[in-house]
């Protein structure tokens, strides 16, 4: 179980990285933290011919405070750094909620948040957090920089809207409102495993009523998915147990998760409903509402 041969490129600047991707991106993979890439290489599952190591690229390891009150995570920010960051906890609390669920400490010290998003494992937490927060992907290539809304980013199982020549340099999380409550909840068979089903959710309140809601599920489909019908059912209503139960019921009837050896379709569907109730309750409690 040893890595297959590849051409190893180490980029020392963003422009070098982009140049390498322009040349080798089609048959290449970006190496940042490596916590997703290395296991697939060891198993020789569709190994890349070129590995482009960006760990020496300067300025990608920063947690940036954006003018609009949001935060931007560079491609080399490790999970453990995001987990420890007070700025992240304050400005993008859903990321902080997600971090303890990501693997184990020795994975989080190496793995990068942006790498996890680019890898787009449908059972991973961060892609769903991107959906729930309305994050923006910033991709650089030799043709310049473009932004991709999270809602348009996740195309399918382990595939995204990124072109082979593009590097996901940053992910920008918008300002988190004081009226927003969020939670990341999941159930896995063992602690630290990929979730059987999970939910990154956000509820915005104004006065007594929900003004907006986001329910982004992971582990239930080939990409992270939102359930707009259930979100819509919450809007305009007070954040009560009844309202959450109604949303949960819509979730359970709307989703058709795929079965695998760890859980059936019906199980995951049921679990998504349970997580809806649990997640919304926790999210509401974050802004002082007990439902």
């Amino acid at each position: 179980m040893k890595n297959p041969p590849f051409v190893y490129h180490q980029a020392h600047s963003l422009s070098e990285a982009i140049e390498l991707l322009a040349t080798y991106g089609e048959d290449g993979k970006v190496l940042a933290g490596g916590q997703s890439l290395l296991p697939t290489m060891a198993l020789r599952l569709g190994p890349p011919e070129h590995v482009i190591d960006i760990s020496a690229v300067p300025d990608l390891d920063t947690i940036g405070l954006d003018a609009d009150g949001g935060v931007s995570l560079g491609a080399l920010v490790r999970h453990a750094e995001a987990e420890r960051s007070d700025d992240v906890r304050r400005l993008a609390p859903l990321i902080s909620e997600a971090m303890p669920h990501v693997g184990h400490r020795a994975i989080r010290t190496r793995g990068t948040v942006v790498g996890s998003i680019a890898h787009a494992d449908p059972a991973a937490e961060m892609p769903a957090v991107c959906l729930a927060t309305g994050a923006t992907m910033i991709a650089a290539s030799s043709q310049g920089e473009r932004t991709i809304p999270a809602a348009e980013f996740f195309d399918g199982y382990l595939t995204t809207a990124l072109r082979p020549d593009e590097l996901l340099t940053h992910v920008k999380f918008p300002a988190w409102s004081a009226q927003s409550g969020g939670a990341v909840v999941e159930v896995s068979r063992r602690h630290g495993d990929y979730a059987l089903a999970g939910l990154a959710c956000r509820v915005d309140l104004s006065g007594d009523a929900v003004t907006d809601a986001a329910l982004a599920f992971f582990g239930v489909d080939s990409t992270p998915v939102r359930v707009p019908e259930a979100e819509a059912a919450l809007v305009g209503k007070p954040p009560t147990a009844e309202a959450f139960a109604e949303a949960a019921s819509i979730v359970s009837t709307t989703l058709t998760p795929t079965a695998d050896i760890h859980g059936s379709t019906n199980y995951r569907r049921h679990l998504a409903g349970v997580l809806t109730t649990r997640g919304l309750k926790t999210a509401a409690s974050r802004i002082g509402v007990s439902a």
């Binding site: 890595n3 290395l38 296991p39 198993l43 453990a80 184990h104 400490r105 994975i107 010290t109 190496r110």
Partner: peptide
């Protein structure tokens, strides 16, 4: 396991725990 689950290969990199099977030597 050589795929990052069992933890037997855990070392410290700059004082922080890491799976040495999930790093290339050059890293």
């Amino acid at each position: 396991c050589e795929h990052g689950v069992c933890g037997a290969c855990t070392i410290l990199v700059d004082g922080e725990p890491a799976r040495s099977c999930l790093m290339l030597g050059v890293q």
